[in-house]
Simulated scan of single mutants.
Amino acid sequence: MPTVSAAHELFDTEVYLDLRKLLGTKLFVKFEGFNFAGSVKLRAASWMVAAAERDGLLRPGCTLIESSSGNLGVALAVVAAGKGLPFVCVTDLKCNTATLRLIRALGAQVVVVEGTDDSGSHLEARKAYIREKCADDGTYVWLNQYENPANWMAHYDTTAPLLAKRFPDLDVLFVATGTGGTLTGCARFFRDHQPGVRVVAVDSDGSVNLGGKTGPRHIPGIGASAPMPLIEPELVHDVVRVPETDTLRMCRRLAAQGLLLGGSSGTVISGALRWLGTHDPDQSLTAVSIAPDLGERYLDSVYDDDWVADAYGAATVAGWSFDA
């Protein structure tokens, strides 16, 4: 077991789950929630902060500021606390209440931007707030996860090599699509080192990543209302778009068997099962999906029937059964 001297130094416990017994499909899931930030975002947060320090952008007296729908905010709060850095997380009303409380508990300041821009985007409103703060005060340092190459480099350097080592015969990798950091880092690595591996992007309905059409989305952490600059479509072998109701069903189905996963994890597993059902009916491929987070932060949303009924309609939860 690894020994670390700070919370942000623990990235990976290399836990994989074989879903053949639980879901009847040959799919291995790499769980990224077993660190002190509870998600895959700790890798990107640590790499971006280290790059800002190395490049001289982050100096004594500076304050980190970043836009996040949740998980990166927690991860940066962990890194900032470990390094003694002030941090301001700019989020919006879709952020889970538990996540907001967790970021504050870690000593960071949270700003909830209530408005949207002319297109109805919370993301652009959050960015506009940060640009204004940075223009007014030069001590603010915006890492800008949406364009920062350290975001994808974290996964090129760590996530993908671990997968390649554990699964030398890997055929297909399923990655959830948010900012594109995990997707691009893994896709670039396998392009350079194991070009036979197919990288499949899993996105949510309503996201405009990879040619999707804009639409309402309620589950934070996956998808985007504007194309993410880090995503390189030419590196992606296929795209699966998952309705959020399918995400809910997968999360509830796995919870009924003891696995409480986050919305992004439910989405990528749902998309992987759909793709494998079409492209690998005899289950001959070695397939892995990356589960970005665990489910405790979604107790007031994904796992709350009242929230689901308000967001998707009462018929969505009527008659649900997840015993098998």
Rank of each mutant, 00 (worst) to 15 (best):
S5A: 11
A7K: 14
L10R: 12
T13C: 12
Y16T: 00
K21V: 00
L27Q: 04
F28A: 03
F28G: 03
G38P: 15
R43I: 02
A44L: 02
S46I: 05
S46R: 13
V49L: 01
A50H: 05
A50L: 07
A51R: 12
A52D: 11
A52L: 06
R54L: 05
G61R: 06
L64N: 07
L64H: 02
S68G: 13
S68N: 13
S69I: 02
N71K: 01
V74H: 07
V78K: 08
K83G: 03
P86M: 09
P86S: 07
V88A: 05
C89N: 06
L93M: 09
C95R: 13
V110Y: 07
V112H: 12
G115I: 01
S121I: 05
Y129M: 13
Y129A: 10
R131W: 04
K133V: 15
K133R: 15
W142N: 15
N144C: 04
E147F: 00
P149E: 04
A150I: 15
N151D: 15
M153K: 13
M153L: 14
A154T: 10
A154S: 11
Y156A: 10
T158A: 06
T158P: 05
T159H: 13
L163D: 06
K165H: 15
P168M: 00
T179S: 06
G180D: 06
G185N: 03
C186D: 11
F190Y: 09
V199E: 14
V202F: 11
D205N: 02
D205H: 03
V208P: 03
K213P: 00
G215M: 01
G215K: 01
P216K: 08
H218T: 08
G221K: 05
A226C: 10
V236W: 00
D238C: 01
V239G: 01
V239S: 04
P243A: 00
R249Y: 06
C251K: 09
G258D: 11
G258T: 09
S264P: 03
S265M: 01
T267D: 13
G271V: 02
A272K: 12
L276C: 11
T278W: 10
T286D: 04
T286K: 05
T286Q: 06
I290M: 08
D293V: 00
E296D: 14
Y298K: 15
D300V: 08
S301Y: 03
W307R: 10
V308M: 05
V308P: 02
D310C: 00
A311D: 05
Y312R: 00
A314W: 08
A318T: 13
S321C: 10
